[in-house]
Design a protein around this nucleic acid. Structure first.
Length: 552
RNA sequence: GCGCCAGUAGCUCAGUUGGAUAGAGCAACGGACUUCUAAUCCGUAGGUCGGGGGUUCGAAUCCUCCCUGGCGCGCCA
C-alpha cells in the first residue's frame, strides 16, 4: 500500500518534470518502483532517471538529481531521497508510515489480505482429473494441492471460482480395470482366471474383488462382461479418491463426466463445426484435424478408423463447453506428461472462434520420491507407488500440503520421505506454524499476567522503532501485494516463502527482545505488534489450507 | 531428430519478470534455556548462476549455439 502511494507521488513528479521541461513523456509507464535488497539503498528505489536518460541521451545522474529534488518535497511520506549508483533514486520512507501499517492489519484482522483484483470474474479451475483406476499417487497429490491452492488464491482475490474434476469412466482404461477386478474375483473363488496383460496390479484390486465376493458370493462368476466389476471398482475407487481429497481439505464444486459430452451431442457438434470451417478431413478411414493450420508440425487424428474418438476430441468439446458455460478465465492444472495435449486443445478452441488467451495451462513437473536416500520408481499399473493416503497417514495434511507447495510448478519436486516423515524441527512447516503458536502463547501469557494491550494508538505505535520491528512491519505491509501477485501468477509457492521469511524474522526477534517486560507502555506496543504478526501468519496459513495452531 | 520444462553453495531450492555487493533451508563446525514455548536463536564456512557468443547504462533473468537431466512427440489418456 505504501509502495502504491509512492508510485503515485512518483507519477506526479514525472508529470511535473514534463511541465518544467526537464524531460518529455517518452519514459511514461516504463519506469518502476522496486524494493532494493540492501538497506542502504532505502525502502524503495526507482529507475526512472535511467530510463529517461536512456531515451533522451542525457546523463542519468543529472536526471536523477532533478527527480530527487521534486520527490524530496513530499515530506509527509518521504523521509530522505538519495541519488546513487548509475542513476538510481533511492527513497527512505518516514518511519511512522511503517508503524501505521499496524492499525490497518489489526483493524482489518481476518480481512487483511489481497486486493479484489478479480472483481467477480468467473474462473474455472480444473485439476486432478484422474480417472478412477486407482488411488491418488504422489504425483496426483502435487496437482491436487497446487490446484486447490491456486483456487484459494483466486477466490481470495475476488474471483468467482469453480473447482472442477473432469473424468472419463467409459474408456479402455476402465475396461481393463473391470477385467483386472474380474480376474482377482475369480481367483478368490478358486476359479481359473486370466489376468489382463496390462492389468492393474495394485493390492486395492484384490480388496475390491474381496468386497464383491462378500457381497455377491459367486453369482458374478458367469457374468457376460466386465461391466459389474468395472462399476464396483469405479465406485470404490472414486470414494477412495474423494476420501483422500477430503483429508487434504480439498472439495470440488463439480465433477464433469466426459461421457456427457457424447450424450449431449457436443462431441459431434465440434466435428461438424470444424468440418464447416474446412479444418477437418478424412484420410485412411480416420478423421483428421488440420492442426498444421495452427503452426503444428503435423495434423492429428480426432476420430479413429474404428469410429472411436481420440482423447483430443472430447478435450476440445469439453473446453468449448467451459466457454459456453460463461467462464471468463479457465485455468487447467496438468502434469507434464499431458503437455502434448495442450496445443491441440488450444488450436481446437481457436478454430471454434474462442479466445484461447482465456485459457491458462499450468504445467507442473513430476514429483521425485526419495526414501532411504534413494529414488522410488513409481508406476500406476504395477504396485510400486506411494499413495497420498500413505503420506497422510505418516505426516498429516499440513506437511503434505506444505511440501507440495514449496516449489514452483515448473521445477521438479523432490519429496523426501525421510525428512517429511520425521516429526522434527527440520520440517519447515513446523517452523512457520511454531511462529503462530508462539504469538498465540504470548497473548495468553499477557492475559494471565493481566497485561492489557488497551487501545492501539499513536503513543504505542511509535515505540515500535527497532530495526527488527520496522522490518517486520514492512513485511506485513507487503503481504497484500504479495498475495495478489501470487494469485495472478498462479504461484502459491510465493506465499510459502513469504511465511518462512516472516517466521525467520519473528523467531529471531523473539530470542533477542521480550514482548512482555516491566515497561508497561513498551509491552503494550509490542503486544499489538504480536497481534498483527499473528493475524498475518494466520491469514497466510489458512489461505493455503494449512492450520494455524495455538499450541504446539 | 523435434517440442516443452529445468540446470544457481556439498544437498534441496528462492530470486519481485532487466537493476546496485546473488539469497534461504538442510548438512558441517562453534556457541545460547533460573526469562513470553529451545519445534527457537547467534556465529563460522560455503559460488565460473551448466558452457560459449550476443543485445545495453546494467544480464542468473532477454536472443543465439552447444552440454546435461526430466516429460512428451500414437488411429493410448
Amino acid at each position: 500500500m505504501i509502495k502504491a502511494r509512492l508510485k503515485e507521488r512518483l507519477d506526479q513528479c514525472f508529470v511535473e518534470g514534463i511541465e518544467k521541461g526537464f524531460w518529455t513523456d517518452s519514459a511514461a509507464d516504463l519506469y518502476s518502483v522496486e524494493e532494493p535488497k540492501q538497506v542502504a539503498h532505502g525502502d524503495f528505489s526507482t529507475n526512472m532517471a535511467m530510463i529517461v536518460a536512456g531515451r533522451e541521451k542525457r546523463k542519468p545522474r543529472d536526471v536523477a538529481q532533478q527527480l530527487a529534488g521534486m520527490l524530496s518535497l513530499h515530506k509527509d511520506l518521504v523521509h530522505k531521497v538519495d541519488v546513487a549508483g548509475p542513476g538510481f533514486v533511492n527513497v527512505f520512507i518516514n518511519k511512522d508510515e511503517w508503524q501505521k501499517v499496524l492499525y490497518v492489519v489489526c483493524e482489518l484482522n481476518e480481512n487483511y489480505g489481497p486486493a479484489n483484483v478479480g472483481n467477480g470474474k468467473k474462473v474455472l479451475v480444473e485439476f486432478v482429473s484422474a480417472n478412477p483406476t486407482g488411488p491418488l499417487s504422489v504425483g496426483h497429490g502435487r496437482q491436487a494441492v497446487l490446484g486447490d491452492a491456486v483456487a484459494r488464491l483466486l477466490s481470495e482475490t475476488g474471483h468467482e471460482v469453480t473447482r472442477e474434476y473432469y473424468y472419463n469412466d467409459a474408456g479402455r482404461q476402465m475396461r481393463v480395470l473391470g477385467e483386472s477386478t474380474r480376474a482377482r474375483y475369480l481367483e478368490l473363488l478358486g476359479l481359473p482366471a486370466e489376468f489382463p496383460e496390462d492389468g492393474y496390479q495394485g493390492r486395492y484390486i484384490r480388496d475390491i474383488a474381496h468386497e464383491l465376493v462378500e457381497e455377491k458370493g459367486d453369482t458374478l462368476k458367469d457374468a457376460p462382461d466386465e461391466i459389474p466389476f468395472k462399476e464396483k471398482a469405479e465406485k470404490v475407487i472414486f470414494d477412495d479418491i474423494n476420501n483422500t481429497l477430503g483429508r487434504l481439505g480439498i472439495r470440488f464444486d463439480n465433477y464433469y463426466n466426459e461421457h456427457s459430452l457424447y450424450e449431449n451431442g457436443h462431441v459431434d457438434e465440434v466435428v461438424n463445426l470444424l468440418r464447416e470451417r474446412g479444418l477437418v478431413y478424412d484420410q485412411d478411414g480416420a478423421v483428421w484435424f488440420k492442426t498444421t493450420d495452427f503452426g503444428h508440425d503435423k495434423d492429428r487424428v480426432i476420430i479413429k478408423s474404428s469410429g472411436e474418438p481420440t482423447y483430443r476430441l472430447p478435450d476440445i468439446a469439453y473446453h468449448r463447453e467451459k466457454f459456453r458455460r460463461g467462464y471468463d478465465w479457465m485455468v487447467d492444472i496438468f502434469g507434464s506428461d499431458h503437455i502434448a495435449t495442450v496445443p491441440d486443445v488450444l488450436a481446437g478452441i481457436k478454430a471454434l472462434g474462442y479466445n484461447d488467451e482465456k485459457v491458462t495451462v499450468v504445467i507442473h513437473q513430476f514429483v521425485t520420491l526419495m526414501r532411504d536416500g534413494k529414488q522410488v520408481k513409481m508406476s500406476t499399473r504395477k504396485a510400486t507407488f506411494v499413495t497420498v493416503d500413505e503420506l497422510l497417514d505418516e505426516v498429516g495434511p499440513d506437511v503434505v500440503r506444505f511440501f507440495f507447495l514449496m516449489r514452483r510448478a515448473d521445477s521438479q519436486l523432490e519429496f523426501d520421505l525421510d525428512l517429511a516423515t520425521k516429526e522434527s524441527q527440520e520440517n519447515p512447516v513446523y517452523y512457520v506454524q511454531y511462529g503462530h503458536a508462539r504469538l498465540a502463547s504470548i497473548a495468553k501469557q499477557a492475559e494471565a499476567k493481566g497485561v492489557k494491550a488497551g487501545n492501539l494508538d499513536a503513543a504505542a505505535v511509535h515505540l515500535l522503532a527497532l530495526p527488527e520491528e520496522i522490518n517486520m512491519l514492512k513485511a506485513m505491509a507487503s503481504y497484500p501485494d504479495l498475495v495478489t501477485n501470487a494469485a495472478l501468477a498462479l504461484e502459491p509457492h510465493r506465499l510459502i516463502f513469504f511465511l518462512q521469511d516472516l517466521a525467520g524474522q519473528f523467531h529471531s526477534y523473539y530470542n533477542k527482545h521480550r514482548v512482555l517486560s516491566d515497561d508497561q507502555e513498551l509491552s503494550r506496543a509490542r503486544l499489538w505488534l504480536a497481534e498483527g504478526l499473528r493475524i498475518v501468519f494466520r491469514n497466510g496459513l489458512t489461505l493455503l489450507g494449512l492450520t494455524a495452531p495455538e499450541i504446539m
